[in-house]
Design a protein around this nucleic acid. Structure first.
Lengths: 206, 206
DNA sequence: GGAGAAACCGTACCGTGAGTACAGTTTTGG
DNA sequence: CCAAAACTGTACTCACGGTACGGTTTCTCC
C-alpha cells in the first residue's frame, strides 16, 4: 500500500465518523483535513469533490458490512445444520455484535445519504440502491432455505420478511441515536428473531 | 389566523418538503423564500435562524403525526371491542393510509434530524426524543391491553415490541426512498401486523 | 379615518465553506 | 538518481447563513 492510499484511508475514516455524527452537509472539508493533517490541495489531490468522497465512503461502508454479514451467517451455518436454527444463531450473533460496539452503532451511511439525496449524483444513489437490494436478496435466500423445511404458519411474503431485517436495523439505529440508548438496536434484532421463530418454528418446539 | 401566521405556515410547508427531499443542510433559505415569494428580511422576521425553523417544522410534524395516530387508533377501537382485533384493524388502516400517499411517504423528519444532529440545539434534539418516547408509550399501552387478554406465545418484552413499530416504519421509509418503491412501506406495516398476530393470536384463530 | 403595530422590502455587509487554478516542493520507489 | 506521486501555498470565486438597519406597505383597532 503506497503512502497515498494510506492517506485516502485516513481521510475516509475521519470523514465517515463526522458524516454519521452530524450529516454530510455539516461536515466541512476544512475540518476533515485539519484532523487528517493535510492541506486543502492535498485533499483535492485524492478526491475531485465531495461527491467523490461520498462515493468512496459508501464503497468502504458497504464492503465492511458485506464482510460482517458473510462472517456472521457463515458462523451460524457452521454451528447448526438446520437452516432455521442457523439463522436464529446468526441473528443472536448479530445482536451481540451490535451490542458490543463501544459507543453504539455509529449510524447507517445509506440512511444518512437517503435523507440528503439531492446532494449526490446518480452513481451514489445507484450504489445505495444496489447494496440494499443485495442485502435483501441475501436474507431472502436464507429464508427460502428455512421455508423449504418449515412452512410458515402465517401467509407471509418472504421478500417482505427479508426486507424487514434491514428496516428494523435501520429504524433501530435511528431510535438508538435519537434516544441516546445504544441497547435499542440489540433488542430490536432480538425481537425480529422472536418474530422469525414465531413464523417458522412449530408451536411445540422450544 | 393573521397574515403573518399564514406566511409562517407557507414557509414551513415549503421547507419541510425541501428538507425531507434533500436534507436540512442542503436546503437553502434563499431557495425557500424564492418559492414562498418573500425576501430574506421577511424570513428572518418570522424565524430568528435556521434552528428556529427546524424547531417549528418539528412541532408541526409531530402534531400532524399525533393527530393521524389518534384518528387511526380511535377508528380501530371503534370497529372492534377486542383489543387485538382493534390493533390489527388500525395497522391495516395505517398501511392503507401510507399506501394512499400519492408520491410515497415524504420521509420522517425525526430520522432526517437524527443524521444531522450537530446542526441542531439541545431543544430540538429533546423534542425529537420526547416525540419518539411518546409514540412508543402509546403503542405500549395498546399492547398492554392486548396482552391482558391474549398472553404472548413467546416471551417478548412489550416495550421492545412497541418500539418495533416505529423502527419498522422508519426503516421502511428509508428503504422506500432508497429503492424508489413506495409500496415497501405499506408491506412492512402489514408484515409487522402479521408478527403481532403470531405473537398474540391463539393458533386456532384465523 | 388616523395611528400604531405587524408584516414586510432593499441594500449592504461579514464569515465560512466548497471548489478552482496553478506554480512550487517534498517524498517515494524503482 | 530521477521521474512520478504526494503533497504545499497562495490567491481567487461563488453560494449560503446571518446581521444591521432604515424604509415601506398593510392590517387592525379605536
Amino acid at each position: 500500500m503506497g503512502k497515498g492510499e494510506a492517506t485516502r484511508e485516513r481521510i475516509l475514516e475521519i470523514a465517515e465518523a463526522a458524516v454519521l455524527a452530524k450529516g454530510f452537509g455539516a461536515t466541512s472539508i476544512d475540518e476533515v483535513i485539519a484532523e487528517a493533517g493535510l492541506t486543502k490541495s492535498g485533499f483535492f489531490y485524492h478526491f475531485k469533490d465531495k461527491n467523490a468522497l461520498a462515493h468512496e465512503m459508501l464503497r468502504r461502508y458497504v464492503a465492511t458490512n458485506d464482510q460482517l454479514f458473510d462472517d456472521i451467517f457463515a458462523r451460524g451455518h457452521q454451528l447448526s445444520d438446520d437452516p432455521l436454527q442457523a439463522f436464529l444463531i446468526s441473528l443472536k450473533l448479530l445482536a451481540e455484535t451490535m451490542a458490543d460496539l463501544p459507543n453504539g452503532h455509529p449510524g447507517c451511511l445509506i440512511a444518512s445519504i437517503c435523507y440528503q439525496e439531492r446532494q449526490f449524483d446518480r452513481e451514489v444513489r445507484e450504489l445505495t440502491a444496489r447494496s440494499v437490494r443485495d442485502w435483501n436478496a441475501r436474507f431472502r435466500k436464507i429464508l427460502d432455505g428455512i421455508a423449504a423445511v418449515y412452512p410458515p404458519r402465517e401467509p407471509v411474503d418472504l421478500d417482505d420478511v427479508a426486507d424487514m431485517l434491514s428496516c428494523v436495523v435501520d429504524g433501530a439505529i435511528i431510535m438508538s441515536k435519537t434516544l441516546n440508548d445504544p441497547s435499542r438496536l440489540e433488542r430490536q434484532i432480538l425481537i425480529f428473531r422472536s418474530c422469525i421463530k414465531l413464523m417458522f418454528a412449530a408451536p411445540s418446539l422450544p
